[in-house]
Design a protein around this nucleic acid. Structure first.
Lengths: 229, 229
DNA sequence: TAACCGTGTGACCGTTTTGTGACACCAGGC
DNA sequence: GCCTGGTGTCACAAAACGGTCACACGGTTA
């Protein structure tokens, strides 16, 4: 699955440049031009990294970072601050607020890309390649394999991606729309009820070992993956 | 363990390109932008190969190579020199200094990767010439022979390389593109479906002993070699 | 209790992906 | 030249997958 990066930056020129250079190296870029928009984006997408402008209209970057880090659901997402030259003294405050790195404007696409790579490596070593396990249900992205208590589990590609997303974002409810965005990908047009069907197929394939209880329905909201009842 | 490559090159652009393209095919890349930094890196990492820029600020590439080769701890590490066009006549001197190969800038990632592969194969025959065996299926790179429970197995050269790659990288899914890169070589252009055909031929040739089950299709992802079902 | 809403479920069918045999081409040996 | 074995590509077949629908079910509300 492609690495998602959310950029929150009010200058459209910078957003566009970042979008172009990062998507060229295989990242999926989601844009927001204000803190508020950034938060609403977080409801749809769960990015792997956030690029955050230091000076934002309305909510400042540092406020945003603090709120992010307080939210247990998002606190793990690494943040890179974009600062203008001459704000050096502010770096300390920025670090306190939980930013993982700083890039000073103007920056080259290359520099940004290498910082991103470094931060991602540091923050979660190969997050998308790590084996995830919940309650005896194990998913190995590298070998593309799912086992329930060492027994092989079969499922289709979409179910696999869905399960992978769930297992890497447990204990959180996702609406059907959010699941479509994160598992199917943005700009696809399919019925929301399609999610139900794939949930059903996923449950069926992991039901043999009783793990279907991990995929929970939250009526009126969506679905959740959780080991708690 | 991943193959480590140390690149010593002052131009960040080239370093980044190399880093990206090599890490994409599974190498671990360590960067240094000067000879001095290169030496300090050698104290931390023992790379399997060194990419060395011909023209370095301060200590030149050739000086570096000479010092490397004098050090008994590092003298075995193969060195590939990166030279700019028009330095052809210098190649002789370079060879005297112990470089194992040359790559002329500008070079393509594919070319570099295949040179690296060739040099590593030449330099350390140990790892890639060891007999591998999985489940009674034995491949001997030295005698270029495959046996299934002591019975001889026939296959074409490409199938042999494919099987060798699979057996040295089991339990992991490879896309058709990755297989093309790793088995065919990086600078060839062939249809991805060609992989399917060779998978088919490989399966056919090892099917007599039932070993075709080791070559597994992962729908939507690629192929995997595994002794597990 | 009946209508209603959201979700579960099985089935359908077009599309996509993979398996498979055949063929043309190339290089090397005779 | 003429085989021969190996390779890449193609066309077709087979299988799996994905999205949609219709209907069933169960809880909630009027």
């Amino acid at each position: 699955m492609a690495v998602k990066i959310l950029i929150i930056e009010d200058e459209a020129a910078i957003r566009e440049m970042v979008e172009m250079s990062l998507s060229a190296v295989g990242y999926q870029v989601i844009q927001a031009e204000s803190g508020e928009e950034g938060f609403s984006m977080l409801n749809e997408h769960v990015p792997d990294l956030i690029l955050l402008d230091w000076m934002l209209p309305g909510m400042s970057g540092i406020d945003f970072a603090r709120r992010i880090k307080k939210d247990p659901l998002c606190s793990e997402i690494p943040v890179i601050m974009l600062t203008a030259r001459g704000e050096e003294e502010d770096k300390v405050r920025g670090l306190d607020s939980g930013a993982d790195d700083f890039v000073t404007k103007p920056f080259s696409p290359r520099e940004l890309a290498s910082r991103i790579k470094a931060v991602l490596r540091r923050a979660s070593p190969m997050s998308s390649e790590e084996v995830v396990e919940v309650d005896g249900l194990k998913l190995d992205p590298l070998s593309h394999r799912v086992t329930a208590n060492e027994d092989k589990v079969d499922m289709g590609p979409t179910e696999f991606r869905l399960l992978h997303f769930f297992m890497t974002h447990p204990e959180r409810v996702f609406t059907r729309g959010q699941l479509l965005d994160n598992v199917w990908g943005t700009n696809v047009y399919v019925e929301e009820r399609t999610v139900d069907v794939h949930i059903r197929r996923l449950r069926k394939s992991i039901a043999g070992s009783g793990h279907d209880r991990l995929v929970q329905t939250v009526r009126g909201a969506g679905y959740r993956f959780s080991s708690k009842p």
